[in-house]
Design a protein around this nucleic acid. Sequence first.
DNA 1: TCAATGATTCAAGGATTATTGAAATATGGA
DNA 2: TCCATATTTCAATAATCCTTGAATCATTGA
Lengths: 118, 118
Amino acid sequence: MDQRQALAAFSALSQETRLHIIRMLVVSGPDGMAAGAIAEKAEVSPSNVSFHLKELERSGLIAQQRESRSIIYTANYEALGGLIRFLMEDCCGGNPEICAPAAAVAACCTPATKGELQ
Amino acid sequence: MDQRQALAAFSALSQETRLHIIRMLVVSGPDGMAAGAIAEKAEVSPSNVSFHLKELERSGLIAQQRESRSIIYTANYEALGGLIRFLMEDCCGGNPEICAPAAAVAACCTPATKGELQ
DNA sequence: TCAATGATTCAAGGATTATTGAAATATGGA
DNA sequence: TCCATATTTCAATAATCCTTGAATCATTGA
């Protein structure tokens, strides 16, 4: 993730509806959600959700794929991880005072997955 | 860090000049930098840097303090750490696939500081 | 007090982004 | 083919953000 992508990602996440959508897609995992389902759950109009989904896709944080009549959106885990990494490394220079709280979170979610990641 | 603050922080970081400023302030540490020095190094006009500094301060990512004629700006390490934490926990639900790359960064910057943090 | 320095504020303009509803596109089934 | 469903695109408007230069404010030293 370079600065250009990071700027786009920050921009994408700086809007309430879009942050909400990202959250829903992370929770829904690899199955993702159809545009209509996202619109319904986020309580926004179809055309408005379409606008924000396009914005999120442009930033690389989500991906789409057609499934019959629906278009399924999924979170791009790699991009989200890359953004966190950018924030810690490139932006904050790996500064321990900044990264320590993040390390605490990482410590409490990664041990349980030992072996689950290749 | 709640969602409101996170949205403000993402918005603050989504602008090239401001991201540049944050980087400089993280590097400059607790000494911070005067507004004029920031403007010079970032190559923007005084009034423009003032606009972006106000925006960054509003988001809580930096703080200011007057020092004689100068106004010194410093990065708010706690807020930056809080934002990374928000991204990992609240936004991404501590999802291991997303947090793993961040954990790798954390692992390579925190051991060296053992004991340096209270 | 006066001038110089460092910085902010303000107003105007331009640029980008968000919202809305209507129209268009794509897919699948009768 | 025709219709219904799922979604996007488009145009218009509203809202927000960025930039610029002139004016203002705060501090210091002569």
